[in-house]
Amino acid sequence: MWSQLDTGFGHWNVFVWLFFFVIISAFALWVRSLGRMDYKRSTEQDEIFWSGNEVPEDGADFSVPASSSYWGFRVAMEPLYNLLNRFHNGNASDYAGYFIVTVASIGVLVLI
């Protein structure tokens, strides 16, 4: 079977997964069909609710920028990120230094 794979530890068949997705999708569509049927396109029901405020015309005024994503994660990991940012300081001399130090370390390790 072209789509089937035995890794030596387990078994994988992509079409089993695709079949699973089809079943789940069919179930989701069935649940959706049980919902309210009185929705009307192009009426006020279509409008964005923005905490009761008037919605700005330009999407740029109320979209979440990528920099704000995972803010909590970044704050929690701030000490590590400070270290990593210092490492990636953009200085070519430092970068060459990291390379030389790594080469030297590998050189020492292979001689052990």
Partner: peptide
């Protein structure tokens, strides 16, 4: 060993 280490690095 040294040659191999350099090439790997």
């Amino acid at each position: 060993r040294v040659a191999m280490g350099l090439i790997i690095a």
